[in-house]
Design a protein around this nucleic acid. Sequence first.
DNA 1: CACGCCTCAACAACCGTTTGCGGAAGCATA
DNA 2: TATGCTTCCGCAAACGGTTGTTGAGGCGTG
Lengths: 352, 352
Amino acid sequence: MGEVTDKPLDRPKPRAFRVTSFDVAAEAGVSQSTVSRALAGDPVVSEATRARVAAAAAKLNYSIDENAARLRTGRTGTLAVVVICRPDEDRKDLNPFTYALLGTICAAASARGFETLVSFQDSPANLSGRYEEQRKADGLIVIGTTQNEAAWDYYRDLGASGMHWVCWGSPYDELEWIRSDNHQGAALATQHLLDAGASQIACIASLDSLQRQFKERYDGYAETVVAAGHQPWLVEIEHGLSRDEQGRRAVAALIASGRKFDAVFAVCDEIALGALCALSEATVRVPQDAALIGFDGIRASAQAMPPLSTIEPDFQAAGAMLVEKLLAGIAGEPHAPRRVPVRLVARTSTAR
Amino acid sequence: MGEVTDKPLDRPKPRAFRVTSFDVAAEAGVSQSTVSRALAGDPVVSEATRARVAAAAAKLNYSIDENAARLRTGRTGTLAVVVICRPDEDRKDLNPFTYALLGTICAAASARGFETLVSFQDSPANLSGRYEEQRKADGLIVIGTTQNEAAWDYYRDLGASGMHWVCWGSPYDELEWIRSDNHQGAALATQHLLDAGASQIACIASLDSLQRQFKERYDGYAETVVAAGHQPWLVEIEHGLSRDEQGRRAVAALIASGRKFDAVFAVCDEIALGALCALSEATVRVPQDAALIGFDGIRASAQAMPPLSTIEPDFQAAGAMLVEKLLAGIAGEPHAPRRVPVRLVARTSTAR
DNA sequence: CACGCCTCAACAACCGTTTGCGGAAGCATA
DNA sequence: TATGCTTCCGCAAACGGTTGTTGAGGCGTG
């Protein structure tokens, strides 16, 4: 009985046809609110009616209107991920590390039942981060290059105004709760070079405050070298160049110095790749004449010739930690700063 | 006058305090609907009141609740981007090409005023694509590896049921309206090798139907070679391996064949990188003994030693075309299939 | 038998916009 | 002074869910 008739309906005009929970309710012979509860898994609805509702929903091919749900609940089930780039940077030339991190963040969010709203912000002129105010997301994860201070300042201010956010790779030490265990990684790399018999180890790095990660890695290197009774040897990178060009120049400077070296630790893989090219061109054989190791574990390092040893952070853990930290913040729970574990990946560039 | 008093308010309980358009209306001394219209730029509101409303909104730091707007309008201003991976694939090991494309898609969407909801779908077991039904997005862009047929089938069916979507890199020819100009690119690459004096050009490729792009590239190669009066020479890749491993094996097979060659065209850069390693290990000098060229223009190809020549598609155009095609579909407008232009990037690996 | 408790649904308010419709001014014309 | 246009704005009805509260029926206990 009781097909849809001429009597006043709950929802009079199905203007642009869309199956709503009212339709499911009618089909299942229950009220709309029961449909909502049943589909949400509320234990207050009996197993029998839950099944009827599920069947009706399936039959009508019903799917929830998330916007309505979000409007009512105030929760979005979405995390915004902002990737900061340099204003002039081609999407193709973003550090593979950043992309890999983006991938694991999305995976971690998905595993926790959250969608990810991704945007790339290059121009400090038109930054946008009002995701939470606009109820587009419950919080913000910011990653990317440190070399765009304006952008970081923008998000820091946003966070200061009560929004929920976490970041990876900011130029500000006090902002970074989650980051690679740079110190430990650099120590691993340096020890690995020492173990391979090297003693004159140059480190291509930057002590610039905007490159905090590099600084930490240099420190780890320096300590290890000193502990082994050697002198730290810093070859500073030039700014304003692409990473591989920085590596090339650094090697040129290294060779020009005339000082003998038997190993090089580059604080990131892309620098190491540039260094590798420059070494080859200068007929310094890797690893016979000099060992070489990088940091970051990007895919290209495995594809270089010779394959490049590196320190690889646990990408999956990195993404997961960022998401956990953010969700903890949203829930108002405490969450201690964490270091992402790293591991040594020994390849040909440091063999023997 | 009229501060908030005990009289019944428009919105009685500001439970979790949030500034709404009603508050802005009160501040500006107009009705809520006028606020909505003013902020939306509706020309029916006078310039004077528009300014008053804008000022009030700014003063109260108001921002629109997108969920309410979306619920009302039915439009989300969001595009979902699904990146298909292989079930066992590490996020770090995704083809850089895919990430670069993701980046330009987001950029293009943003330029058109759309947000991008990104997800990585690896396991065919729990695919999710009901973004449009759930009103989370207005349409879907699917990119990624072709080697996950189940996933592509899923989205194809989804599209068949009336949802709006476009894709890049599916295993099905009839699905791909937007793709690289593979034929032209391969011809460019091959001609470049011929111009460099090569005549015995091997092509590392696959004729497998799941790798349509590779097939198209092989065809372009073969035609060009034949036109120059030579024989095409296919070295088929083995399946189920990583791209660079495929390149290595192919070179091994090439050398094992004993046949003389003076150039190699690999149908994708990652294969070329593997080939480069294998050639070096076999003491075949690149480019002196054999020239080598790839396809895709990924960043790592520029960082190889020697730097690898390649065919680079216009990434930005690719992202833009996908977005345009999707938006056209949503708007019900026609949109012809397009080819993304490619260009030759000549580097050391094919020099002389 | 009367009573209270427990289980399960229904009622209805509410989330914060957009937008169709109606109406009040203001002004020109007859 | 009526009448008819414009111009600009307010009223109120949606949009489609979630959730606090109410209430009907079933059952065990004193």
